[in-house]
Write a protein that binds this DNA or RNA. Structure first.
Lengths: 124, 124
DNA sequence: GAAAAGATGCTTATGAATATCAAGAAACAG
DNA sequence: CTGTTTCTTGATATTCATAAGCATCTTTTC
């Protein structure tokens, strides 16, 4: 329940203060290594999970890939995954239809949309 | 490249001829066990992958869950995941906006949409 | 049928994510 | 400050989903 101030936790938080794009746990680890060379991956996972719980971060699940994490304070948006260069782009605005026409009784709390294709750099 | 007729492969194909909903590899294994008691999970994975390659099946990736598989001949649709009972419902029609307003150069090949919330049976 | 080409099933390997636990570091009391 | 308590860390082991390796068994082909 408490929340201690540790340098590893700060380092991980700091990474997301500079970076917007969704990062994988390993990418977080690599970046944090610059500051804390012997940081363990388990600590990264723990920090990420905690931060998701406290809604500092949001989990980004792209089809067929393992989880990435992005700041929770970003404006609502969706993602574009380029299958050629494997990069993920943030897309402004919501791409969901307004009139969903769901059957009675379904209550939507969240939605995920991922577009897949090729980005401007990988046209073809 | 060739494609042999084996009873295990037929059994797996037969399951999907009766069932529409997305099934996990383990669910496929369980159902197939009724017909082929000593079927191995590896064979299920191989069959599912082959069937995805030949476009008999489609992989369904819901956020935070492992892959499920559904028939590829189903009309384009999306999925609703109830977080209470954990069931997955097919939703008719496409829920993507028509005017995506993407930056120039992005070419969309596919899109995935998952709605999350509670279903009629789990209202609350 | 018998040989050749593949598929199966078991076991082992890989990769992501979590659990375990001793040792280290913050918070707290004095 | 300094000791005590309690949480966090890091290394390792574990779990789970999936793929790979390989000897054996089945289809296909002749």
């Amino acid at each position: 329940m408490p929340q201690r101030h540790t340098k590893q936790r700060s380092a991980i938080e700091h990474i997301f203060s500079r970076i917007e794009g969704p990062l994988s746990p390993n990418e977080v680890l690599e970046r944090a290594h610059e500051e804390i060379p012997n940081l363990g991956i388990a600590t990264v996972y723990r920090a990420l999970n905690d931060m998701v719980d406290e809604e500092t971060l949001r989990r980004v699940d792209l089809p067929g890939q393992s989880s990435r994490y992005e700041r929770a304070d970003l404006k609502h948006h969706h993602h574009f995954h380029c299958t050629k260069c494997d990069r993920v782009f943030d897309l402004d605005g919501c791409l969901l239809k307004h009139d969903l026409g769901l059957p009675k009784g379904f209550v939507v709390k969240e939605h995920d949309i991922t577009l897949t294709g090729s980005c401007p750099d990988c046209k073809g």
